[in-house]
């Protein structure tokens, strides 16, 4: 671990570690609305089968998860729970925002009870558009996240300010 802290991680080792990380993502599902069913189709259906991308769905708790897929309409009443969920996850952690509602409010952009975008509360790594996005779109989002993890500099990740949610 000393290598990572000092920021002197050799490049080959970084890419080795990143490869290991990106193909063993544990995805916590924060399924809220319609998109949750498409997420279920991507995660549980034999046709889409997310596990072939090295993603393990259904961890028992957010503490075991590397990535959370927030799918569905986020309401103002729900936001505190989502924040708490995010705080419980161990670093390094990633957020996929699935569907128009989570991205920006979607069809409920003018509603009095819907949060217009989860990125007001959490840092989002990948946005997946659609209402709801097809399961294939979620798979692509996961591939994009894996590419992002693959390019990450471990030292930056270590030294960078940890994300504290206000």
């Amino acid at each position: 671990m000393g290598l990572v802290e000092s920021g002197k991680m050799p490049k080959p080792l970084t890419s080795l570690l990143n490869t290991a990380r990106k193909y063993s993502l544990w995805a916590y599902q924060w399924g809220l609305a319609c998109c949750a069913i498409e997420m279920g189709a991507a995660f549980a259906s034999p046709r889409y089968d997310v596990m072939r991308l090295g993603v393990i769905p259904l961890p028992a708790s957010p503490r075991q998860a590397d990535v959370v897929v927030i799918s569905g309409t986020v309401t103002d009443k729900m936001v505190p729970s989502i924040k708490r969920l995010y705080e419980q996850m161990a670093d390094p952690k990633y957020v996929i925002s699935m569907g128009s509602c989570t991205n920006c409010g979607g069809p409920y952009w003018d509603s009095y009870s819907v949060t217009k975008g989860i990125d007001q509360v959490l840092p989002v790594d990948v946005y997946i558009p659609g209402c709801p996005p097809r399961p294939e779109a979620l798979l692509e989002g996961i591939v994009l996240l894996q590419q992002r993890i693959g390019r990450e500099d471990m030292a930056d990740r270590w030294r960078g300010d940890p994300l504290v949610v206000q």
Partner: peptide, 21 residues
């Protein structure tokens, strides 16, 4: 029932504005 307890106003009254709009 639906809204958080600190919510102010009665949304289905016609004079309740949709602020986003």
């Amino acid at each position: 029932l639906y809204l958080p307890s600190e919510f102010e106003g009665h949304p289905l009254r016609k004079d309740f504005p949709l602020l986003a709009r």
